[in-house]
């Protein structure tokens, strides 16, 4: 057997072959980063990070909490806005579409400052954590709204007519016909958006919310171990976002039979 066959996809691949290829790619990438660090800095020093382990763990927990709360809230906001932007009531439709366009058309950094120091201050939202979750959810909600609207638009109207003809109530039609298809069609995009929420939460550090990135910034201000600190930060974020992608992959398979 030529050695090249070891790297080619065939219908009957064993686990060992897949693992080998995966490890190969991982080794090359890690090697590349390690070599780059060695050329620049020439040392790894994780002792400083170990000193700050309690704070890092708290920051990690905060990022996790922010992400989970914002995922739930942004899903609600996104669903409301997606429904609203298909509404027959024009003010509702325009409101939802304006929301989506403005939020998607401006940077998150500017929104954080605007919402926290202007709107938040004007209306008495003093709690940084509440403000942080709200800002992040409003931002991500606009993207989720577009994902869901696309999903809803892709479900043919004739399906609902048929459902009504065979005696489904509107609630039944939504639950049994629309939702399963919507889930299946939007899940990969939604999972990507959930990973974005985790990453975007890092920008909340600019209003001194002590989540993971802010913790690293504070640690870095004391240690100056720039490279190791930020490499480690990347690893921690990946540890949060990668399971989301895996979960999405699994759910995609789970719902595949629906179509």
């Amino acid at each position: 057997m030529p050695i090249g066959r070891l790297f080619l996809r065939t219908p009957k691949d064993g686990r060992a072959k897949l693992l080998l290829n995966g490890l190969l790619v991982a080794a090359v990438l890690v090697g590349f980063v390690a070599l780059s660090v060695a050329r620049v800095e020439g040392r790894y020093d994780f002792t400083d990070l170990w000193t700050y382990r309690t704070r890092l763990a708290m920051g990690f927990g905060m990022t996790l909490a922010f992400s989970v709360l914002s995922m739930a809230a942004s899903l609600l906001i996104g669903f409301a806005s997606a429904t609203g932007s298909r509404s027959r009531i024009l003010p509702v439709r325009y409101l939802c579409r304006t929301y989506v366009n403005v939020i998607r058309g401006t940077p998150l950094l500017m929104q954080i400052y605007l919402f926290f120091y202007i709107i938040g201050d004007a209306w008495g939202v003093e709690d940084r954590l509440v403000a942080g979750v709200l800002i992040l959810s409003i931002f991500e909600g606009a993207y989720i709204s577009e994902i869901l609207r696309g999903g809803l638009d892709s479900i043919e109207g004739s399906q609902l007519e048929i459902a009504r003809a065979v005696g489904f109530t509107p609630a039944q039609a939504t639950r049994l016909i629309v939702l399963p298809q919507l889930l299946r069609r939007t899940l990969p995009a939604l999972a990507g958006q959930f990973a974005s929420i985790i990453k975007d939460s890092s920008l909340l550090s600019v209003i001194s919310i002590v989540e993971l990135t802010q913790t690293i910034k504070e640690v870095n201000a004391a240690t100056f171990a720039f490279t190791t600190d930020y490499l480690f930060l990347g690893v921690l974020y990946f540890a949060l976002t990668f399971p989301v992608s895996l979960l999405s992959r699994a759910l995609e398979k789970r719902f595949a039979y629906e179509n």
Binding site: E126, V206, I207, S208, Q214, E218
Partner: peptide, 18 residues
């Protein structure tokens, strides 16, 4: 102690009583 990247944010925290 609240740490910020920008001096302007630090000043705004004071002017807004935060």
């Amino acid at each position: 102690i609240r740490a910020f990247d920008s001096e302007n944010a630090c000043v705004t925290e004071v002017t807004q009583g935060k």
